[in-house]
């Protein structure tokens, strides 16, 4: 065979469905959405009215602020919890390790509504756990953990976030090379130096990737919130949903809110990436 330069025409042919589908149903809609947020339909005049609304109207500003806080809180809970479980998993005997990994990959496909249902039964006003704790401690009926409050929503979403982070971190801790750490110690590195120059740089890429998934996912999440409290909690994602499909139907405003949401995610992901680069030794 005389192949000097590989020719890829079959491969490019095979990419047509993929590129075609994503162009029509993802790329075009996204570009169209960005345009619709600034260009009036029909007239064609450019206006930033819908962005001005987000800056000036208190309930939009509140939504942006709430979403930032909520996504950060959930990512931190998920990040810390998942890192903890991910640290334990590789240390377990093989049987338990695969059991835990399978169990912790279950919530990924679980409907947000099922999770909402489960936590209403567990932690609602008459929730099983609430009743058990009340009986055990002899608490009055009006003292209970409120699943419909902000902390309650964080606890519910942790059921997604912790397992998701666990899967990432279990792989990361599983790949952590023990011999590298020992080599550093043998060369006379102090414990702090081992952490700073060996352990943290190895863990950082996986951790940052995990946190990015957590934050991005939480910025967009609204199914479980909607099932638990309806519109009572003002989040950016919930606002977008209401502008698309409910009484406050306003498509250009939804487009502008969406662009803001995407920008926030892109900004935070960039920051996390920079942070990871800064952690690299010599970087």
């Amino acid at each position: 065979m005389s192949k000097s330069k590989p020719r890829y025409w079959v491969e490019y042919l095979f990419l047509i469905p993929f590129v075609g589908f994503l162009s029509v149903f993802e790329l075009y809609p996204l570009v169209n959405m960005a345009l619709r947020s600034v260009v009036e339909t029909g007239g064609g005049s450019v206006s930033f009215q819908y962005y001005a609304n987000i800056l000036s109207q208190p309930h939009y500003r509140m939504a942006v602020r709430n979403s930032l806080f909520f996504a950060t809180a959930c990512s931190l809970v998920g990040g810390i919890g998942g890192t903890f479980v991910g640290y334990i998993v590789p240390r377990l005997p093989g049987r338990y390790r695969s059991l835990l990994l399978s169990l912790y990959s279950l919530p990924m496909t679980l409907s947000g509504l099922v999770v909402a249902f489960a936590f209403i039964v567990l932690l609602g006003r008459n929730g099983v756990l609430n009743l058990i704790v009340q009986r055990l401690l002899g608490l009055p009926r009006d003292v209970y953990f409120d699943v419909y409050s902000w902390p309650g929503l964080v606890v519910v979403y942790a059921f997604y976030q912790i397992p998701l982070m666990t899967l990432t971190m279990a792989a990361v801790f599983g790949n952590l090379d023990r011999s590298l750490i020992e080599a550093a110690r043998n060369l006379g590195a102090r414990p702090l130096q081992v952490w700073r120059y060996v352990i943290i740089p190895t863990l950082a890429p996986g951790f940052v990737a995990g946190m990015s998934i957590q934050f991005a996912g939480m910025m967009g999440a609204f199914g479980t919130v909607l099932a638990l409290v309806g519109g009572a909690r003002n989040l950016l994602s919930v606002q977008i949903y209401y502008h698309i499909s409910e009484s406050t139907y306003n498509l250009p405003q939804a487009a502008a809110l969406s662009v803001v949401l995407v920008s926030i995610i892109a900004g935070v992901l960039t920051l996390l990436n920079l942070f990871e680069k800064a952690l690299r030794p010599g970087g």
Binding site: P29, L30, S212, I240, L261
Partner: peptide, 14 residues
Amino acid sequence: LVFPPVIVGTALVL
């Protein structure tokens, strides 16, 4: 990652 489901849904509807 950058375009979560809520954005995909909005873009499709628009």
